[in-house]
Amino acid sequence: MIGIALNITIGMVVLATLLNVYRLIKGPDAPDRVLALDTLYINAIALIILLGITLGTRLYLEAALLIAVMGFVGTVAMAKYLKRGSVIE
């Protein structure tokens, strides 16, 4: 039963990722694209955790943690660049 639920959930998250990519391509403004990238990395974390449950290993959680840290720094850097024109002042 968990196997079926896992497959359905992976399907839903993949669909969500495709919708994010649609917003990333369509824009129309730069902040929309940053928002789409922000959502994409959170969905990537979800997919990695689901992969970990499927394979029955916890090894991938470290990667998910790294994506969480780096994705946040990336979002802040991009938003700050849009606002100020530079990342480090």
Partner: peptide, 29 residues
């Protein structure tokens, strides 16, 4: 699992469907 997948999908639908940036901000975050 199903609740998590459903909310992730609804957030992405909001991102794709809502009309302006500020309303889109509510869906995914």
């Amino acid at each position: 699992l199903l609740i998590g997948g459903a909310f992730t999908l609804v957030g992405a639908i909001g991102l794709a469907r809502l009309p302006d940036f500020y309303t889109r901000l509510h869906g995914p975050t």
